[in-house]
């Protein structure tokens, strides 16, 4: 069911190109990639080697031997260990004012975070969501692990 919503959002983003925080908007890039790493985008599964663009609404997943590192456009660093999944639920960045929004859904596995320019300018615009909790930032580096029964 969830993917229908993502696909709808992707179509919407296609219609109003340039509106930030919509699915399909450029959010970052894969900078490290080891073992099995892929991105689920608008219902499609694509492999994610180094250099793969990461878009808003992308869900990034690693296999049992996988690990991935992503740098978002505001210099936020996200990296996941094996058997992990996280989603760029929201991302927008104004490079003039450094205003924007970052919301990352941590579905399962391990994620290490080093926050970027948006968190420095306006920490309340940045959050990380596990199945049960919302993590807000007032600093830079932390790690999250979640072992949910159902990754949706």
């Amino acid at each position: 069911m969830k993917w229908n919503r993502f696909m709808g959002a992707a179509v919407l983003a296609g219609l109003c190109f340039g509106v930030p925080a919509f699915a399909g908007e450029d959010a970052g890039m894969v900078k490290t990639s080891k073992g099995q790493v892929g991105i689920e985008r608008a219902g499609q599964w694509i492999p994610a080697p180094v250099g793969t663009p990461v878009l808003v609404a992308d869900r990034i997943k690693t296999g049992a031997d996988g690990a991935v590192g992503v740098t978002l456009r505001d210099n936020t660093l996200l990296s996941a260990g094996p058997n992990s999944a996280f989603a760029i639920d929201k991302f927008a960045f104004n490079s003039t004012t450094y205003e924007g929004v970052v919301s990352v859904g941590v579905k399962k596995g391990t994620l290490a975070v080093s926050t970027g320019k948006i968190a420095k300018e306006k920490p309340e615009s940045v959050d990380f969501r596990t199945p049960t909790s919302v993590i807000g930032v007032h600093g830079t580096e932390f790690v999250i692990e979640t072992e949910a029964g159902d990754e949706d």
């Binding site: 049960t132 909790s133 993590i135 600093g139 580096e141 932390f142 790690v143 999250i144 979640t146 072992e147």
Partner: peptide, 17 residues
């Protein structure tokens, strides 16, 4: 059925975090 853990790491520049 959820198990979660969040740990704050030291800031690389040693500033409060």
């Amino acid at each position: 059925c959820v198990s979660e853990r969040v740990v704050l790491l030291p800031a690389p520049d040693g500033r409060p975090t």
